[in-house]
């Protein structure tokens, strides 16, 4: 998949062409929503807010830059803002069981649901910024790319990934053998 939207004129992308380019990276939106929201309703709300912001900000996108990086930055900023806002309103953390079984959607099989619950469980104990690091790491981004999206150095990103893995190992028995 082409990771840029270089076929679009810079600074004045038409909404239809830009929406199509965003649609090609829809997985980013699903992943961010699954990382920061526990219920189907919250995920749909978050994705809608992110999409509105993406379309509104399309004039500032530089087509020579990777679209996925730009989308991730904006999606994460909207998601973290929404999480903090929800937390302030609720004044309590969402219970870990709340909505976890709906994560996979109505048609998903039992195994799929358990796997999605696994993601929730892994992310739940992390603060919003560390969730972003972990999401990008699990999505296969390099330390340098993670640093670019989050706004920290590559070495700092590496240090944080190590700490998060240690935290997950003690919190949920995460095994980091073999490939890691």
């Amino acid at each position: 998949m082409n990771d840029t939207a270089s076929n679009l004129p810079p600074g004045s992308q038409g909404i239809d062409a830009f929406a199509e380019a965003i649609g090609n990276h829809a997985g980013i939106l699903r992943k961010v929503a699954a990382t920061y929201c526990s219920t189907e309703h919250d995920r749909a709300d978050l994705i809608q807010d992110i999409l509105v912001q993406l379309l509104a900000a399309r004039g500032s996108y530089d087509p020579q830059r990777p679209l996925s990086t730009w989308m991730y930055r904006l999606a994460l900023n909207v998601a973290i803002s929404q999480v903090r806002s929800r937390y302030r309103q609720a004044r309590v953390l969402v219970p870990i069981e709340d909505g976890h079984l709906e994560v996979a959607g109505p048609g998903a099989d039992h195994e799929g649901r358990q796997e999605r619950a696994l993601l929730d469980r892994a992310m739940h104990g992390l603060d919003p910024l560390n969730r972003a690091i972990m999401l990008l790491y699990l999505d296969g981004y390099s330390q340098a790319q993670i640093g670019e999206i989050v706004g920290i150095s590559a070495s700092n990103a590496g240090t944080k990934i190590t700490r998060i893995k240690q935290q997950l190992r003690s919190a949920i028995g995460l095994s980091v053998n073999q490939e890691f």
């Binding site: 699903r30 994560v103 998903a108 799929g112 699990l138 028995g173 095994s175």
Partner: peptide, 25 residues
């Protein structure tokens, strides 16, 4: 209790391909 990071990546893979999560279109 012994979860591998590969499991978590598989979950994200399902979301990437649209096998899970809301209908974005």
């Amino acid at each position: 209790m012994d979860t591998n990071l590969a499991d978590l990546r598989r979950v994200l893979g399902d979301l990437e391909t649209g096998q899970a999560g809301p209908d974005i279109s």
